[in-house]
């Protein structure tokens, strides 16, 4: 039993450069932005890190900008701003952001924090996967960009090195319809039982998908993406062929690697993902073609 009192250092860098130096000197320091995950863990005494690295003073992390045709979202931009300021250009991400917690949580919680926690249930992850986002990491050694589908390694584990910080996410602006759907026992303030994001990319005839809460990490459904990209009549905008939505749903469900837990069974998660995939495809294709459709 640990009877010693553990103290916790609270490090407050003012600039990103200072933050990276601090992180290099204190690799065990846990970054803190909105605190909506971390403070719960501290409160429940699930972890007691020797140091917290408070990022809230660093203004350069709290802004978004346009860089090389991408939207670059600073790691500490809260969900509330993603919804109000980026809703039309990153609609899938904004839809997911609207389902995060409560208004208070959306004012505090950040996409960078979502990535840093790397929970398989993070609401922000599926639209980033579907939208082909890139995560920007930095350390005193330099910076690097990691495609989001290579970012997650396991439950709450990612490629972030001990001396690195998540500094931004780069997402291409939507060129086609995007959707996000999530199943939970109530309409707000829920951890997803499962979630699904879909992005259609008509400029190059590709499809993006993201699965949440149904595997050790957030996942792409690559077979489903390839199947659907080949089936869709991108130019002509013909209605979805018979059976395509169903097959797409099956392939999405097949890509999931769910488990049974207190929120739902693996079987239900697979079933529900197929339903969400069918529905989001129907909605998205209707948006793309400007036609009503049933499914």
């Amino acid at each position: 039993m640990n009877t010693a009192v553990s103290t916790m250092e609270f490090l407050r860098p003012a600039t990103l450069a200072e933050a990276l130096e601090t992180k290099a000197a204190h690799p065990e320091a846990v970054p803190l932005a909105g605190g909506t995950d971390l403070m719960v863990e501290l409160n429940f005494d699930r972890r007691r890190p020797p140091a917290l690295l408070d990022l809230t003073r660093i203004t350069e992390l709290a802004e978004w900008s346009e860089v090389d045709g991408h939207i670059r979202i600073g790691a500490t931009v809260p969900y509330a701003r993603i919804i109000t300021e980026l809703g039309s250009r990153l609609p899938g991400l904004a839809m997911a952001a609207r389902t995060v917690g409560s208004p208070q949580i959306r004012n505090r919680g950040t996409l960078g924090g979502n990535l840093g926690s790397a929970s398989p249930a993070g609401d922000g992850h599926p639209p980033l996967l579907a939208g082909h986002a890139t995560v920007e990491l930095a350390s005193v050694r330099g910076s690097r960009r990691v495609p989001v589908d290579a970012f997650f390694l396991g439950p709450k584990r990612s490629v972030v090195e001990p001396d690195e910080l998540v500094v931004a996410v780069r997402v291409p602006p939507a060129t086609g319809p995007q959707q996000f759907a999530k199943v939970g026992p109530r309409n707000a303030m829920v951890i997803a039982v499962c979630a699904f994001a879909l992005a259609l990319h008509p400029e190059n005839g590709t499809v993006g998908t993201g699965i949440g809460s149904a595997g050790p990490t957030p996942l792409r459904a690559r077979d489903a993406e390839e199947f659907l990209a080949a089936e869709l009549d991108w130019a002509g905008g013909r209605p979805l062929p018979e059976g395509v939505a169903e097959r797409f749903g099956e392939l999405v469900a097949a890509a999931a690697r769910p488990i049974d837990d207190v929120r739902g069974t693996a079987a239900y998660r697979g079933h529900a993902l197929a339903v969400l995939a069918r529905r989001t495809l129907t909605w998205a294709w209707r948006d793309h073609t400007g036609r009503g459709s049933c499914g």
Partner: peptide, 12 residues
């Protein structure tokens, strides 16, 4: 806790 024991929210 109130994450595992859930009660209705306004949106419901």
């Amino acid at each position: 806790n109130l994450a595992g024991y859930i009660v209705p929210v306004n949106a419901d």
